[in-house]
Design a binder for these strands. Structure first.
Lengths: 191, 191
DNA sequence: ACCTGAACACCGTTCAAGT
DNA sequence: ACCTGAACACCGTTCAAGT
């Protein structure tokens, strides 16, 4: 029973990329937490096979977070004005949380995993806000913290697709409300 | 070696209250996560002794969150106006996160643990905001999400006392800024 | 009623094979 | 270079004693 020891004969082997993709798939399923053993089982492989490709569990988490949150920075809409770009950047960030709530929760528990990417996102946001208001540091903190908190609510509602759409719309409303106050436009009235 | 089986002769036994207090102490220490085994070890007792008093790990978490976050509602300053009471309530909530970041992170991963208490806090906040603005639901979401996100940053900076004070002050500034926009007072200028 | 050890089904990770 | 099983030090939890 079970496979013989040593490298399998005809197998084409694992790849770091395939492991990361499988890990995101696994995290997307209901109630599945990202374990080295469950990830290995899903790939039909021994837990230890993973270590050569993705390092230990913390490294795996870091690689996943860079892949997911690195995409947030890929947006380019340099033509738009600063408030619109702030809006787009935060929406992308918030969406990334909604797409991978379990990963985000794991990162929150081990904040070093996101350090580099998070800093780059924050820097871009800071630059955009500086063009809008002299109180850009205060508003950067407000917008980032609010995005995190709203993302946390997304995490708590993991799995429920319909509710997720509602919450995404609520985030848009809240974000618009704050951007209006921030830019001083103070649009129309309530309702 | 080790103790004999059965109930120890002279021991006065465990109490639910003592266990919960010890659990909060344990969570307050650096890098200590709340395990049944580590908690039992700290109390000089077998892991299984705890189950009779606090139930399983999820129940323990829930009991702790009710103890910590229940205090948030104990505030009474009925004389103050609604914005001041909103400010006090959110500040207490935020402080509770800062005092128990590890517990809060554990709750975030298992949101059912806080369900009851969180709802009561949200209800009181909603009532207060309804007296201030017709857009009270929008602002309730904004303020709650922002408090959570800022609390999350507190969790990430766990342990560092000086930084904690700075972050608490930053939260006050952000909260004041939003309450000004919310009440329409629009105080002075930047700086 | 209350606490115990042994046991079960899990973890992440090290290490020494094996091909 | 790459994958393997066995082993180690952990988990939470069940169960059947023991007092």
């Amino acid at each position: 029973m079970s496979r013989p020891r040593g490298r399998p004969a005809g197998a084409q082997g694992l790849s770091r990329d395939a492991i990361l993709s499988a890990a995101l798939d696994l995290l997307g399923e209901d109630g599945a937490s990202l374990g080295m053993r469950s990830l290995a089982a899903r790939m039909g492989v021994t837990p230890m096979s993973l270590y050569r490709h993705v390092g230990d569990h913390a490294s795996l988490l870091q690689a996943l977070s860079e892949r997911v949150y690195g995409e947030v920075l890929e947006e380019v809409d340099d033509g738009a004005d600063a408030p619109a770009r702030v809006r787009a950047l935060l929406t992308r960030y918030h969406d990334a949380v909604g797409r991978h709530p379990q990963l985000t929760l794991a990162i929150f528990a081990e904040p070093a995993a996101l350090a580099g990417t998070a800093q780059r996102i924050t820097e871009r946001l800071t630059g955009l806000l500086a063009a809008i208001t002299p109180e850009y540091l205060l508003w950067r903190d407000i917008l980032v913290d609010h995005a995190h908190g709203s993302g946390l609510a997304l995490c708590a509602a993991r799995g429920d697709g319909a509710q997720l759409d509602t919450m995404r719309a609520q985030y848009q409303r809240a974000l618009d409300c704050m951007l209006e106050r921030l830019t001083g436009l103070a649009a129309g009235g309530p309702g």
